[in-house]
């Protein structure tokens, strides 16, 4: 399978760009595997990268990210460099172009779908969506499943399958930016969970009036213990009481607060 247009485009480049690479293939074929051979292979791959780019470009309007396509085309190019046999007497490009195209096609066939769907359904979906846009043009409105079925000569059930298969063509990434608008946060950032601190808010709000009712000394001890994270001995030092006394006061205050929360 050759593509005259592509071959020509690449050929035009070859007169300027790729000719100097040709002898390298013969050199590489004679070398034993080793660092020298690997370096030659690298040079051949990078030298031919524009070919992969040309081909990736041709497929770029089909809804796959350009970078992914370029990646796949490059893999195809690497395969082509590895498999090319200069003794056959063919030009590298006439071998490489179909190889790279094949790789890109396979990518569309196998991984274009987010969820793997049987080949039969992939084709059904393609037929249904083509028919639906053709019919929309003819009718001036969106087509119904029965119209599509009649158009394609399929049963309605078969059309239903084709429509439903389309639901999984593309999945949504959790990192996807939902809209280019002002708050362009990714999907994952919008999935809500109950805040762990919510219960804390409730306690906090119940506690506040109770804390306000405490005598100044008890409140101070409580604050030093739980907000200042001090030990009872440190607190005893601060407020000029014995550690035992602080301990008793803390226990009494906490009990009072617990009872207060239970009552309210």
């Amino acid at each position: 399978m050759t593509h005259p247009h592509l071959v020509n485009a690449a050929w035009r480049d070859s007169s300027e760009g790729y000719a100097h690479l040709r002898p390298l293939f013969e050199k590489m074929a004679q070398l034993e595997p080793g660092p020298e051979k690997a370096a030659l292979r690298d040079e051949l791959v990078t030298g031919h990268l524009p070919v992969a780019e040309h081909i990736a470009q041709r497929f770029s309007h089909r809804g796959e990210a350009h970078d992914d396509l370029l990646q796949v085309a490059t893999v195809g190019l690497i395969n082509a460099v590895d498999r090319f046999d200069p003794d056959r007497g063919t030009e590298f490009l006439s071998f490489a172009i179909p190889t790279i195209m094949g790789e890109v096609r396979r990518h569309f066939r196998d991984t274009g779908w987010s969820v793997r769907v049987p080949r039969r359904l992939q084709e059904r979906h393609l037929a249904v969506s083509t028919a639906s846009s053709e019919l929309a043009q003819q009718l001036g409105r969106a087509a119904t499943p029965s119209e599509i079925a009649a158009h394609l000569g399929l049963s309605k059930e078969e059309v239903y399958e084709g429509i439903e298969a389309g639901n999984v063509y593309r999945s949504q990434s959790l990192d996807e930016i939902l809209s280019p608008g002002e708050d362009n946060t990714a999907m994952a950032d919008r999935l809500g969970v109950d805040d762990d601190a919510l219960d804390g808010v409730e306690y906090h709000e119940t506690l506040r009036p109770l804390l306000n009712q405490l005598p100044a000394r008890e409140r101070r001890i409580l604050i030093l213990r739980f907000y200042g994270n001090m030990t009872q001995t440190e607190i005893a030092h601060r407020v000029g009481l014995s550690q035992m006394h602080v301990s008793r006061l803390l226990a009494k205050t906490l009990k009072g607060l617990r009872d207060g929360i239970a009552d309210s």
């Binding site: 409105r141 969106a142 087509a143 119904t144 499943p145 599509i148 239903y160 429509i163 439903e164």
Partner: peptide, 11 residues
Amino acid sequence: GAIAMREDYDI
């Protein structure tokens, strides 16, 4: 979706 489809609502 399935109901609408089977009731032959358009796409």
